[in-house]
Design a protein around this nucleic acid. Structure first.
Lengths: 347, 347
DNA sequence: CTGAAAGCGCTTACAG
DNA sequence: CTGAAAGCGCTTACAG
């Protein structure tokens, strides 16, 4: 494909019989260009198949009108709504969005963050907890950076949409307590801040039964074994849905009835939670809102305001996996309609 | 944050006491720059915290070394391995990757495709079947475009990594036939080319039993009802895993045993297939390979070669959802180790 | 409302 | 192996 000399604004100017700056002004939609001139320019541009050269535009204007979004990985359904929220808010403000992901690897994450900055975006939203303060601070010193999630620390030069893991875990455990469970376990698989916060809140709420299982140490198997013993747990709160789903599979394999023998509550309320049988109770986060809010922070920082912090309030969605038999509605365990709003929280 | 005059190569040149072009050459890693000069320049650059301005570089060089990747949506786990394949091949060739997604909406998809082109990437890989030939041809006339998937038509100005849906469906149905099933149903939810190709191949292989169910027309419910009738299906092949999972949930709700009452085989072998109980048999596609191959096509087109077409050969992964009781191995239904390679296909 | 000039920060030939 | 010049295609003031 011998690129046939892509037309420039000079070509359009010639074709329209006007000056180059008029073309620029007209194309940018600058007010103060007569309707006639504008039409003239637009027609000439269309006739020549003119497309503005983004690199030149950005070099000359000094702004890209682009925000880079960095995701921990592509696999996590949790990200989707956040990205949509960001994109909607960005589009409303005339910004484009560039996506990148770190394959769940801190090294790759760091490299992608650098790529994004090198690309020349105006700001970055990092939807990940796996970036160190050093890396975050480095970028935040250069351009507006907003973190979505719960890393160990976020430099105060960056904006931050934080999870309220304490409340989320409390909602889950209180729900199980109010269903009569007294021996509630916690299943986790990492020492990341969110998992630790959930655990601490679990301990404070459940009365620290000592029933904690680390999947990195074969926790699911040990948990399932424990369920069979007399003083074993009758319910479990897991650090995320992924773990809960693996647990459900194992329980099914081992003939353990959920919720009969073991009630289960997960975290994140991903698409999976609704598809599983039994349906998985899970703590939901306002993901769309988190995305929109992150973009709002970006815009305010771009406008020169200081970085802020916002906290996302979780809610609990109850499904069959934690429903006691006496309040089980009908056959299935759908319950998607249940408790998707804060209303259910305190119950 | 008062941007403190970001240093340019001119600043670096002054600091290093050399000319601006030497800085450019050294920074680009141009051979033919003495080791001493290079060190001098690099040190000065590091000292000043110099970062190359991507927009200027791309404007001046005329290339971005960036390929845009457009995904149907972010939710589909199917995409992940493809993207990884693309990124690995791109990195090896010195290219960066920019991600975009269309939220499963043809209009948004089209807009994002235009955004990518407007951004100024060197080439585009469209991992979607939801773009019309018009849109594809429009882009393919401008820069190298490679399509991954199975749209209705792909202009021959574009490269193409196509699914072999015929073979995939045949593998699934033959597997069910060889397990003794004679009344095999097909469950689908769209008329997209891939679904149609799978259906046609299903018909040809299964002997067209007429047991076809469209989920847009309450197909899952009707299928489950049919299973209970004397001449109802004893097995079903679904157009994708998502449908299969919904079916498994419904079957569980209705007390239908899988695979006892109904054997199920899905398509795509997403992560879900392995997590479900019973584990879901599914047709696998070589996603990583598809991504790498797409990038290889891009590079060859960038090198002036004509667009080509490649076909991805599917394989079948058998899990508990379609395993007859006499060959069920032990308790569970994991079987992730089974048939993940072509070896199993012909059986 | 319109036009000529300078400049954004690089790279690309092209002399030395 | 190194330096001065021109140019990539826009935008931004700034006169008219």
């Amino acid at each position: 494909m011998p690129r046939p000399h892509r037309p420039t604004i000079i070509d359009v100017a010639h074709a329209a019989g006007v000056s180059k700056s008029l073309v620029s002004a007209a194309l940018r939609g600058d007010a103060g260009v007569s309707a006639d001139s504008r039409r003239l320019v637009e027609q000439a541009a269309a006739r020549l198949g003119y497309r503005t050269n983004g690199w030149a535009q950005r070099l000359a204007s000094g702004r890209s009108n682009l925000v880079g979004v960095l995701l921990t990985d592509l696999r996590n359904a949790y990200h989707t709504d956040i990205v949509n929220g960001i994109e909607d808010a960005a589009a409303e403000a005339g910004y484009g969005v560039i996506l990148s992901h770190g394959r769940n690897d801190p090294g790759i994450l760091r490299a992608r963050l650098a790529d994004l900055v090198g690309l020349g975006v105006d700001a970055v939203i990092a939807v990940t907890a796996r970036l160190g303060e050093r890396d975050l601070a480095d970028v935040a010193g250069r351009l507006p950076l907003v973190v979505v999630g719960r890393p160990a620390t976020v430099p105060d030069t960056a904006g931050w949409i934080s999870n309220d893991d304490e409340t989320g875990a409390r909602l889950a455990v209180e729900h199980l307590l109010s269903a009569g469970h007294t021996r509630i376990a916690y299943l986790y698989a990492s020492d990341r801040p969110a998992a630790v916060a959930r655990r601490d809140s679990y301990r404070a709420t459940s009365g620290a039964t000592g029933l904690e299982f680390d999947e990195r140490d074969d926790g699911i198997r040990r948990l399932v074994d424990a369920v069979r013993s007399p003083a074993g747990p009758t319910a479990v709160f897991t650090a995320n849905d992924r773990l809960a789903v693996s647990l459900l599979a194992r329980a099914a394999d081992e003939g353990i009835d959920v919720p009969g023998d073991l009630a289960v509550v997960g975290y994140d309320n991903t698409e999976l939670a609704e598809l599983m049988r039994p349906g998985l109770s899970s703590v939901d986060q306002p993901r769309e809102w988190m995305g929109r809010t992150a973009m709002r922070h970006v815009l305010s920082m771009l406008g020169g305001e200081a970085p802020q912090r916002d906290i996302a309030e979780p809610t609990l969605v109850v499904r069959a996996s934690s429903r006691s038999s006496d309040d089980r509605p009908g056959a299935g365990g759908h319950g998607a309609t249940l408790g998707s709003r804060p209303a259910r929280c305190g119950e």
